[in-house]
Amino acid sequence: MSDHEQEPREAHPYKWEMVVDLDRCTGCEACVVACHAENNIRISGPEEAAEGRAVNWIRIERYWEGEYPNVKARFMPVLCQHCGNAPCEPVCPVYASYHTPDGLNAQVYNRCIGVRYCGNNCPYTVRQFNWFDPHWDAPLQEQLNPDVTVRQNGIMEKCTFCVQRIRQGKEQAEKEGRRVRDGEVTPACVQSCPTSALVFGDRNDPVSRVAKLAASDRGFHLLEDLGTKPAITYLKRLP
């Protein structure tokens, strides 16, 4: 019997990546809501949000383009870039932050002891810290996703590319003896995006949508010059 998990890691076939088409993004924040619902992200409430502690694994940054009357709002969804050379990983003293063979930056919650160095060292500031124990107002705790851990007070968390969906898809595919099909696995944000600005898939699959789009000449990476090799490609037509 050929055990899949005994194969050498280098031979692992997936590399999960995302493409964000800024020309399509309308800033509707459906992805943010979907992410909250899928990943049991705690509700901060207005007071904490005012203190800057609102937790969003994906946030829409808004920039203004042009001078006053001809001004245009531009939106940029920013989530964990799942860097190939992630600055958050080597600084973790307990391996809570590490690199999976699939190219994800994993965050192992129950290892984390909350030194918060990763949060400082992330140039995209997408890592979130649990300042208090999470809570949900009355009916909301009924909709928690049983596939996702509730993170406790004192640990770091961040976008996982909905790793629970990825694993489900991979197990299903493995059971049927095939690779994961393009579009079979979608994180919640991608699934909910009404304009299909977000595309997710396996970059190692040359015919996947994500691989084709990432090769587009509109593509750029966020803070590319830092050498972090982000797994998210932004598309934007330059004027």
Partner: peptide, 8 residues
């Protein structure tokens, strides 16, 4: 400083 100091 530790977030989960009981896990130090």
């Amino acid at each position: 400083h530790l977030g989960r100091v009981w896990r130090w």
